[in-house]
Design a protein around this nucleic acid. Structure first.
Lengths: 145, 145
DNA sequence: TCCTAATTGAAAGATTTTTTCAGTTCCGGG
DNA sequence: CCCGGAACTGAAAAAATCTTTCAATTAGGA
């Protein structure tokens, strides 16, 4: 069973002049399989399934590259302050299940009315925002608490 | 929605049965004076203006107490992941100036329509959200970029 | 004022992140 | 298909960050 990283991810890496190495493939695959935020340590473990000898340092460096390209995003919700999740290019938000950590990505948020109100009140010129949403995914709702 | 006035954290601490020590007073004063998120190290330095021999460990412990009471909140600005800022009890958001780091606190956000939309799309039962807004404060707009 | 438990700073310990470096791998050009 | 060289890698060491431990001190009620 050879899972390959999504073409767009590999392509984007290559577009920016980065090499698509065995170690980077392992990190990307691990993130895609997890479909939830992973701590650096967990990601390291998960990546070892694809490249047994990958070093922790390489996980740090790969995340740095991916985050720089906007392909990965640090997720700060709850107590796991240094987790990372894949994200689509463009503006999206993460909805995170607080029980199983599963993540759904939402795009096309329309906060403009809210942000205009904030501009009116504070006088700030708003340039960006960061929103994370916590809840229970359908499965965990059924599973009870 | 309103801008909240700063409050006397010392009084609130005491209300919850914690001792109001010299070290804690120093940390609280430093946070009130800064009016922006401070890293632990910066907070330690700032607190030393009020209690010259305060230890870094005590800063950690004081933040733990204050965060537990919801009087202080970790702020995860992109490059300063472990900063802390005062916050009022209840549900508020921070608007952060990306040039000078000044923070304005906003309460009474109305994202309910947006959150209902997300519930409809994802099936998640939304329990909470966490929003940070970045921009330029009025002064920094005037100062140019 | 006195008493007690909470709190403190320093030091040691643990963990996390970054730097360094010599060897390896990717990949475009022959 | 195979070179060559820059990008990349893992390991080790170093640095930074955070936590634990403990004896001494302090806040605040009696």
């Amino acid at each position: 069973m050879a899972i390959l990283p999504s073409q767009s991810l590999a392509a984007r890496l290559h577009q920016h002049g980065f090499k698509l190495t065995r170690a980077r493939r392992a990190v990307i695959l691990a993130l895609e399989e997890a479909a939830r935020p992973l701590s650096i340590a967990d990601l390291h473990t998960a990546a070892q399934a694809h490249a047994a000898d990958i070093g922790l340092v390489t996980v740090y460096r790969t995340l740095e590259v991916l985050a720089g390209l906007g392909l990965v995003r640090p997720v700060h919700l709850l107590d796991n302050c240094h987790a990372y999740a894949l994200c689509s290019p463009g503006h999206t938000h993460h909805v995170i299940c607080q029980r199983c950590n599963r993540v759904v990505e939402i795009e096309g948020c329309d906060l403009s009315a809210y942000l205009e109100e904030i501009t009116a009140i504070t006088g700030y010129h708003i340039t960006g925002h960061w929103l994370e949403i916590a809840g229970l995914c359908p499965e965990c709702q059924r599973a009870g608490d």
